[in-house]
Design a protein around this nucleic acid. Structure first.
Lengths: 371, 371
DNA sequence: TTGAAAGCGGTACCAT
DNA sequence: ATGGTACCGCTTTCAA
């Protein structure tokens, strides 16, 4: 039997008071203490007062660990995220952690090392912790992963990402719709040669945005877009854009699968090709990350509201936690095309909101006119 | 007694296999299973093989919760952070989480709601979870908080922040030194009217940077800097800068206590006052956040390397976890003045590194010359 | 090397 | 309303 620190005068580690200590101090049973700390449990007001007083004087705090063991609810949510250097991901994480907090859930972070965005977070590690749920931010998810979570009874929600099979819940922005609007916007702006900068190849976001973009271009009678992959990474994006712009007939309209890559694209266009972004070349992103609004960046981008996305994800988790039988949901959060200076403006279709942002609201679908 | 789910055919919640299940399947005792999962415990190779096989076929994973209860080590670190919309904070969090992960510690996130940067993270909540340690990123810390952690035997490390009393370990950048270099740099650049944009008023970073800046200016014979507070917040900073620039004699050199505020400053200077940043006004930040390097921002800033800072913090935690008697440490991580286009260049003292960044290496201390 | 048994700090059922 | 007690799932003596 391990000894209590009081047995050894020299012991260094103070042991937090336990429920038994409080019970003794208050002259009641452990059960009574437990009840006094439980909302709506039957305990006489006097007893509860005595207990709370004793607890306070001892500095007692119920152990979340012991409680989890008996109740089988850890109130922990495993949150896995990559590329926090992308401001949009950081916003998403912030919003998610606050949202979970608000319903009494804690965020247990499972970071994924930088560029090797391929790795699943360690499933073993996650399940060891008996988390109540798993939330994956923009990370990939193998079907093995989701299958194991399902068989372990741990609900999973994907944020800013969907799974190939529809069995896993997800919350995303309006990838296809947003990309379509961007295509229409660029066509209306009179551009000639379109390009798409893809993200990680197996990313659902990148795929969906590419599809929406290409489809809308085709429908407008435009040419198929050029294509390169930036893997959601700054360095890879720079390279890809460099190659595109050095081509004999470089694009005059570039849609990047997210803002993070668009920032790299702007850099290369300006610094290496001396292009006036917004005039000689139009660059559009996706996310409307905080950086996009800065003067000097001024990036036109389709917005994904992080608070709304996180809110939906939290609600989805709360629902499935309350009723494990609930089927998977796939939510799409609407966004808007926020117009700034990085892309040439169409003659019509712009609107200004009350808070001073300019949006593109489209109007008659314009079609591509050959030069 | 709660029933096992197998008692009720209709039960929905699958219960993860326990050590007893594995023991039964392998035909050994629970002790044997426990040992088989413990590095270097005495277990016969044959036994261990049997156990691991049984475990694998059952999908058994030792419960971190149950283990924590007996070992009294949760391997959890409470990490509290605010303002993740500041890219530097996000980088710090990312680096910290990865660093902790590498030594087997998990990050339990305690987010603090946005602007009310004053609130301590909930101490009660943190201590309930019996975390092995607490890491505070850029958040404030009341002495009550640190005292309670100390008396609970939970080590605390502050990152990018120091405490008033020296009893709490901390890792910071070179606040005073960096701010001094910035002052010297601006003096050497021939500026006349200096200003400082402070952060949250009781922030040690802001205070130290202000002190270094003002001291060095005075020593160079320059005037005392103008001062306004931006509270590390974009909106508050914009207001403060707006006020400064509208003054009859606006500053021609503005040092912002961090990059996040400098971004707001640049915006206001350009958009509202039509100033050519880097020519008509010089703006310098602190952190060298990822955004600073973007074309269109191009912010001169004193760097704080997030990986190095996180690394030191992790090392400090590891040390104190290994030996709780170890006294508090205060580490300062060196940085460099990364020169970009947002501030006028001195005639001399610049150096270019092999990776193409320009640094200010100073040289002879220049002194202020009155107009 | 192995197994029995006593905890770890709570919760919840039961009887009083 | 209260106390007794049997767990929750694992670790760690201790004896065999």
């Amino acid at each position: 039997m391990p000894r209590r620190d009081t047995d050894q005068p020299g012991a260094r580690v103070p042991r937090p008071p336990t429920i038994a200590d409080v019970a003794a101090a208050a002259g009641v049973s452990r059960s009574a203490v437990s009840r006094s700390f439980t909302e709506g449990a039957s305990a006489a007001p006097g007893t509860r007062a005595k207990v709370l007083a004793a607890a306070a004087s001892l500095g007692y705090r119920p152990s979340a660990i012991a409680r989890s063991l008996t109740t089988r609810r850890s109130h922990l949510v495993a949150v896995s995220t990559v590329r926090l250097e992308n401001g949009f991901n950081a916003s998403l994480l912030q919003a998610l952690a606050l949202g979970l907090d608000a319903i009494g859930l804690r965020t247990l972070l499972f970071p994924i090392a930088g560029t090797s965005a391929d790795a699943d977070p360690s499933l073993d590690e996650i399940l060891r912790h008996r988390v109540d749920a798993v939330a994956l931010l923009a990370t990939r998810l193998s079907s093995r992963f989701s299958a194991q979570c399902a068989s372990a009874g741990v609900p999973v929600v994907l944020i800013n990402r969907t799974a190939r099979d529809g069995a896993t819940s997800s919350v995303t922005g309006d990838n296809v719709g947003g990309a379509r609007r961007i295509a229409e916007f660029l066509v209306a702006g009179g551009h000639r040669r379109f390009a798409f900068l893809a993200g990680v190849e197996d990313s659902s976001n990148s795929r969906d945005r590419e599809r929406g973009f290409a489809d809308a271009l085709r429908e407008a009678g435009g040419p198929a877009p050029l294509r390169a992959a930036g893997r959601f990474d700054r360095v890879a994006s720079s390279k890809a854009v460099r190659r595109m712009l050095a081509a004999p007939e470089p694009p005059d309209a570039l849609f990047c699968a997210n803002d993070h890559m668009a920032l790299a694209a702007i850099d290369v266009a300006r610094r290496e090709f001396n292009l006036a972004v917004g005039h000689q070349i139009s660059i559009v992103g996706f996310d409307d990350a905080p950086t996009a609004a800065l003067s000097g960046i001024d990036l036109t981008s389709f917005s994904q509201p992080p608070e709304a996305m996180a809110g939906r994800a939290v609600a989805a988790l709360a629902a499935v936690l309350a009723d494990p039988a609930r089927p998977a949901v796939h939510e799409t959060v609407a966004g808007e095309l926020v117009v700034r200076g990085s892309a040439r403006l169409p003659a019509a279709g712009l609107a200004t909101t009350t808070d001073g942002r300019r949006l593109w609201v489209g109007g008659a679908v314009s079609s591509f006119r050959a030069p």
